[in-house]
Amino acid sequence: MTYLVVFIISYLVGSISGSYIIGNLFLKKDIRKYGSGNAGTTNAMRVLGKKAGVTTFLIDFFKGMLVVFIVKKLFGEEYIPLGILAAVLGHDFPFYMKFKGGKGVATTLGALAFFNFKLTFICYLSWLILTIVTKMVSVGSIAFYISIIIIYSIYSGLSGVNLIIIILIALLGIYRHKANIKRIINGNENKIGGRK
């Protein structure tokens, strides 16, 4: 029963979509109908502007942190990975948006940073470096998820089940970038500041 409660609470918090709220309430735009159709930071920045994009990132980042805080306080640390997974699922597949949300990068980053800052910072550096070198946010994001699998598998010391959950979160993130991966392979992926 505890697992179910943790999942439901975390999913509902994770389903709070920064870009959807900002777009609909303040700019009268449904982010899912513009740009890539993704309800995440990158598309929000392109469609709604830099301020809206930054605000979207902060909302999605801090809701990840909030989930970790709530789960730790109410249920204990052993339930945190499940809470993070549920929060990311809520972000990616929010029920009130017909399950069409974002890709979970900001939410994953915020949640894992609050859960284990040192390991997550290393993973974040991979995102930063690859994004700068390639000028593609998607490449950095994919590198971020791959580094989570590697770094957490080696250094986290998590139990088998919780490590598997963390790996599932990373694999979900990579899967959500499948369209980007195809464009990268074809040489058609968006670069920062414009198209290739």
Results as ranks from 00 to 15, higher is better:
residue 131 T to H: 01
residue 57 F to C: 01
residue 60 D to E: 09
residue 116 N to M: 13
residue 131 T to I: 06
residue 71 V to H: 14
residue 16 I to A: 13
residue 89 L to W: 01
residue 13 V to Q: 12
residue 147 S to F: 04
residue 23 G to F: 06
residue 24 N to D: 05
residue 110 G to Y: 14
residue 185 I to L: 12
residue 112 L to K: 06
residue 173 G to W: 00
residue 50 K to P: 03
residue 32 R to H: 14
residue 142 I to S: 07
residue 29 K to A: 06
residue 16 I to Y: 11
residue 59 I to S: 03
residue 187 G to F: 13
residue 114 F to C: 14
residue 190 N to G: 02
residue 118 K to G: 02
residue 141 S to K: 08
residue 56 T to Y: 05
residue 155 Y to L: 15
residue 150 I to G: 03
residue 195 R to G: 13
residue 55 T to C: 08
residue 53 G to A: 06
residue 162 N to S: 12
residue 132 I to Y: 11
residue 176 R to C: 04
residue 18 G to N: 05
residue 127 W to M: 08
residue 85 L to D: 04
residue 97 M to P: 00
residue 85 L to N: 01
residue 23 G to P: 02
residue 58 L to R: 00
residue 159 S to I: 08
residue 128 L to G: 04
residue 159 S to H: 05
residue 95 F to Y: 07
residue 37 G to H: 11
residue 158 L to A: 09
residue 135 K to C: 04
residue 69 F to P: 10
residue 82 L to R: 11
residue 124 Y to S: 11
residue 134 T to Y: 13
residue 61 F to S: 05
residue 108 T to I: 12
residue 115 F to T: 11
residue 58 L to H: 03
residue 82 L to D: 14
residue 107 T to F: 06
residue 156 S to E: 07
residue 63 K to F: 13
residue 16 I to V: 15
residue 6 V to I: 13
residue 84 I to C: 07
residue 196 K to G: 14
residue 29 K to P: 01
residue 95 F to M: 03
residue 117 F to V: 04
residue 3 Y to I: 15
residue 121 F to A: 07
residue 56 T to C: 06
residue 79 Y to Q: 11
residue 35 G to R: 14
residue 17 S to F: 08
residue 80 I to K: 14
residue 136 M to P: 08
residue 21 I to C: 00
residue 108 T to H: 07
residue 171 L to C: 09
residue 51 K to Q: 11
residue 95 F to C: 00
residue 140 G to P: 03
residue 44 A to Q: 09
residue 96 Y to D: 07
residue 55 T to I: 10
residue 192 I to T: 03
residue 111 A to D: 10
residue 153 S to G: 10
residue 81 P to I: 08
residue 99 F to C: 01
residue 180 N to V: 05
residue 68 V to L: 14
residue 41 T to I: 09
residue 166 I to P: 00
residue 107 T to K: 02
residue 156 S to M: 05
residue 192 I to K: 00
residue 99 F to P: 02
residue 64 G to F: 10
residue 20 Y to T: 05
residue 23 G to A: 05
residue 105 V to W: 04
residue 11 Y to L: 10
residue 171 L to A: 14
residue 189 E to Q: 12
residue 100 K to I: 06
residue 170 A to H: 03
residue 63 K to Q: 11
residue 33 K to T: 15
residue 123 C to A: 12
residue 119 L to A: 07
residue 176 R to I: 06
residue 147 S to N: 07
residue 44 A to S: 15
residue 132 I to N: 02
residue 40 G to N: 01
residue 104 G to P: 03
residue 15 S to W: 03
residue 129 I to W: 00
residue 179 A to G: 11
residue 191 K to L: 08
residue 178 K to V: 13
residue 64 G to R: 10
residue 185 I to E: 02
residue 37 G to V: 12
residue 95 F to V: 07
residue 102 G to D: 05
residue 60 D to W: 08
residue 70 I to W: 13
residue 191 K to I: 11
residue 123 C to R: 09
residue 49 G to F: 04
residue 122 I to R: 00
residue 46 R to F: 12
residue 118 K to Y: 09
residue 163 L to E: 12
residue 77 E to L: 15
residue 79 Y to D: 12
residue 65 M to I: 10
residue 7 F to H: 02
residue 10 S to D: 11
residue 1 M to K: 12
residue 106 A to H: 03
residue 70 I to Q: 11
